[in-house]
């Protein structure tokens, strides 16, 4: 049965997404589903992990294992799943509040480790599920329920952070260009190491500034400019473009050993497959050190 080729419907659950009509997250879901279909990955070998927020509900809509955890903690759980069984394809997901706000520390540290997982962030520059407060990626001056006189903070730049923190695949997609987004997602899933897909995913309910139209007027594709994805310096330059021109596509990619490659504890294969029949003897041997 598993030799039959899988269709996009095989990767869908029966649960209808709870997102508002027009939400950018639909395109992200479609991107993941089509990437899985193109790659023909077995559903049983995929775990989608998420935090809390509108976008984090995505785990319920994909026919794979799902771990819908705590707000901001998708990346540590996803890392832990890789430690427990590094044969699984692990996709961490969430929003900008989840990943770049409460979970920012984990985001940076996971990139330093170059753990082999894909992190897809549905970045809408606002807190949607809690009805419209400023988020860590809200532009300075943005008026929201929690910033009635305008946000006073400079936004987090996830692409630049990724570039200086050791991630080995850093990209940005736009929900208004679903086929481009699906292509980036597919490449991220096949990349070995930590891959970031930051998605400009408009919130049609609470962000009336960064709308599909606003992005359409600004986005351009890095590949159209023949951007060299192996050049860190030019990637950093591109990462700072915003407001007038916004690049989408792959900023940077590198081939480097992953954490799983280097951890001696994983040399004998996935932890979950390690035999447990000799543990007592192991302790007995170690006990000699205490004499």
């Amino acid at each position: 049965m598993e030799t039959e080729s899988k269709k996009i419907s095989d990767y869908k659950t029966n649960t209808t997404p709870t997102w508002c009509p027009g939400c950018g997250d639909f395109a992200v879901l479609r991107g993941v589903l089509s990437a899985l279909t193109e790659l023909q990955i077995n559903s049983k070998d995929v775990v989608v992990v998420s935090g809390i927020g509108c976008s984090s509900n995505i785990t319920g809509f994909i026919n794979s294992y799902g771990f819908h955890g705590l707000h901001g903690r998708a990346v540590p759980v996803a890392s832990g799943i890789r430690f427990g069984n590094h044969n699984l394809k692990v996709i961490a997901t969430g929003g900008d509040g989840d990943g770049y706000g409460i979970g920012l520390g984990h985001f940076i540290h996971a990139m330093r480790r170059n753990i082999d997982l894909t992190y897809i962030v549905m970045n809408n520059q606002v807190y949607g599920l809690t009805t419209g407060q400023a988020s860590p990626t809200s532009d300075k001056g943005m008026l929201t329920k929690s910033t009635p006189t305008g946000s006073l903070e400079v936004p987090v730049n996830p692409i630049a952070l990724g570039l200086i923190s050791g991630a080995t695949y850093i990209s940005r997609g736009f929900s208004g260009d679903p086929s481009h987004l699906a292509m980036i997602t597919k490449n991220a899933l096949t990349h070995k190491g930590f891959s970031l897909v930051d998605v400009l995913s408009p919130c049609v309910t609470y962000n009336k500034i960064q709308t599909y139209e606003w992005f359409r007027e600004r986005v351009y594709k890095l590949e159209d400019e023949k951007h060299n994805t192996r050049n860190l310096d030019s990637a950093i330059k591109k990462a700072h473009e915003w407001d007038v021109k916004i690049p989408i596509g792959v900023f940077y990619e590198a081939n480097q050993a992953t954490y799983e490659d280097d951890d001696p504890g994983l040399k004998n294969g996935p932890l979950v497959e390690q035999p447990l029949d000799n543990t007592g003897n192991m302790s007995k041997e170690i006990m000699k050190e205490f004499i």
Binding site: F67, G69, V77, G80, G84, L88
Partner: peptide, 19 residues
């Protein structure tokens, strides 16, 4: 790990995977 929040969430992930 970077803090105890990450520590325990990682361990939950590893345990979920079966270790």
């Amino acid at each position: 790990a970077e803090d105890e929040i990450s520590v325990i969430n990682m361990a939950i992930g590893a345990s979920f995977a079966g270790a």
